[in-house]
Design a protein around this nucleic acid. Sequence first.
DNA 1: CGTAATACTTCGTGATATGATGTATTACGC
DNA 2: GCGTAATACATCATATCACGAAGTATTACG
Lengths: 101, 101
Amino acid sequence: MDIQLKRGLLDVCVLSAIKDGDSYGYKIIKDMKPYIEMSESTLYTILKRLELAGMLTVRTSLHGGRLRKYYHITKAGLGRIEDFKDEWGEVMSIYRFVTRD
Amino acid sequence: MDIQLKRGLLDVCVLSAIKDGDSYGYKIIKDMKPYIEMSESTLYTILKRLELAGMLTVRTSLHGGRLRKYYHITKAGLGRIEDFKDEWGEVMSIYRFVTRD
DNA sequence: CGTAATACTTCGTGATATGATGTATTACGC
DNA sequence: GCGTAATACATCATATCACGAAGTATTACG
């Protein structure tokens, strides 16, 4: 899909992917694949950004000899999803403007 | 509204603002204001980009001593709006993923 | 033992929205 | 007639961001 359209969705998608339970990078990509695709470099950039913004916390743990970073959503992260919901009316109004006859 | 969310909408908004008749910069901003706001520098950047992409053509005319550039949508521009429509199903699917309970 | 899958990192690049600033003319209130 | 707002367009520097490329390591599997 259009890259510019993705920009507004990626952050909340990632937050949404961890909202029902902690997850890690590789799994997040797989879980989101049916809805939206993103490269690893993109995901890890976003995770870092969301962490800096206080929307998630990180916990590193060893899993079968491999390092794994588990991401946990914060109140601010959940709030970000709510803000997104609240803004959707505006988006739909724009959609109707663009696709009017 | 969120700046990243805007990014995917601005181009098609501008195209949509001229699809029912040629218009010019200042008027486009006013027409779009109820739906989405943008600065002049943003609009003129977008108009230039859309012209380069062949989605609109420009005609300069003098109007009351002031220069005006009228923008006219092309077939490619109309096609861009159609593509946007076609992509919307995907966007809604992402929206449902993000806002699921 | 080689190849794929898992897992995370870093870097450079290109796209792009925006504020600041500038230039000019017209319209309007006082 | 004079100042201020509105009209109209242009340019530049800046910050944000998605992505491909390339790298490092380990596990799983045929």
